Simulated assay, not measured.
Amino acid sequence: MSSLNLIELAGVPVLVRPPINTDKPAPLIILWHGFGPPDSEKVLAETLPLESVEAWKAYLGLPLFGQRLPEGGTDELMRRQIDDYVLKLLLPIIEQATHELPDVVKALQERFSIDPNKGIGLFGFSAGGFTALLALLESKIPITAAVLAGITKDLHTAVNSYERIVQETYSFLKEQYPWVEDKYKKYSWSEKSEAAKQRLDFIVRAEEITKRNPLPATLFVHGMQDEIYEVSNTEKLYAALLSKYEQLNQSERLSMQIFRHLAHHIKPAATDISPEQRQDIATLQETVANWFSKYLIV
């Protein structure tokens, strides 16, 4: 496996994996992890090495994770999550990560032999996928290809999933965090979080993605056994985008692949996964690599 370089660029921890051939400029792929496995730039780099893709791979640590944990560590993250999942955890993280993106891309281009004419590839898993979607909607960097893994169609659906998990694990949460109260079983929408709900309605804003130049070749990958975000919701977002891509006669630049045996979190290093899951992970790795090779390495 090619070497990984851990550096800090624009205040962001980044693991960089070079292309096999570093003698000539190559495209750049930015990759974001999620809140659960793969939940760090290191674990994501191990999960999705993309060795065969002739591109620079930059695995970015999300704000408030890893080296950027807030004072109080994971307990403080839990406090923010329970207090206001949208406004104190999810939205600040994906907003900051999107805001950091142009400076990180610029710093990478200045430091490594990256071809500025090839556009940028994006990969995001779960919360990292929300970041990639927000970048597709609001960032001005040229995004040529994107892969969205384990995401859902909008913020409202994500909050519904969050509420369900809190309710299912409430006894454990109460034991670990005595300050947790019954009121936290339901998310309390405010004027600001309602505004975020509109902003992160990816179906409503689907047409904005198709107005990008270049039109991003976008691949959705999702596990049929995903217990966090139901695949049916992701299919609705895919369908909304497909109608727009078809209007542009560009339907070949949009795809979705469902993996029968995969759940939400991906753990290729785990010893207790079934042969079917291991095969799905290998196919997922190959599918993502092939997508970037086809639409980014041109």
Rank of each mutant, 00 (worst) to 15 (best):
Q67A: 14
V86K: 02
I94D: 01
R79N: 07
L89T: 03
I82F: 15
Q96G: 01
D75P: 10
E71S: 13
R68D: 09
F65G: 03
E76M: 09
K88A: 07
L87A: 15
R80V: 02
Q81K: 12
L69M: 12
E95M: 00
I93C: 01
M78H: 05
A97T: 00
D75L: 15
R80D: 07
I93R: 01
E71T: 13
R79H: 13
I93D: 01
L87W: 06
G72M: 05
I94W: 00
D84M: 05
R68G: 04
I94E: 03
T98M: 01
D83C: 11
R79L: 15
T74P: 08
L77D: 06
K88D: 08
E71P: 01
I93M: 06
T98F: 00
F65A: 04
A97D: 00
G66H: 06
V86D: 02
L69D: 12
Y85V: 09
E76P: 11
P70M: 13
L91N: 12
Q81W: 04
T98R: 00
Q67Y: 05
P92C: 02
E95F: 07
L62R: 07
G66S: 09
D75T: 13
F65E: 15
E76S: 04
E76A: 09
A97Q: 00
L89V: 02
R68K: 12
L77I: 13
L77P: 03
Q81F: 05
L91R: 04
R68M: 12
M78N: 07
E95A: 01
E71L: 08
L90Q: 14
V86L: 12
T74Y: 07
Q67K: 15
E95T: 12
G72C: 13
R80K: 13
G72L: 10
L62S: 03
V86A: 10
Q67W: 03
K88W: 02
L69V: 04
G73D: 05
A97I: 00
T74N: 13
I94C: 06
V86H: 01
Q81Y: 02
D75H: 14
Q67G: 15
A97R: 01
I94M: 03
Q67E: 08
Y85E: 09
P63W: 07
L87F: 06
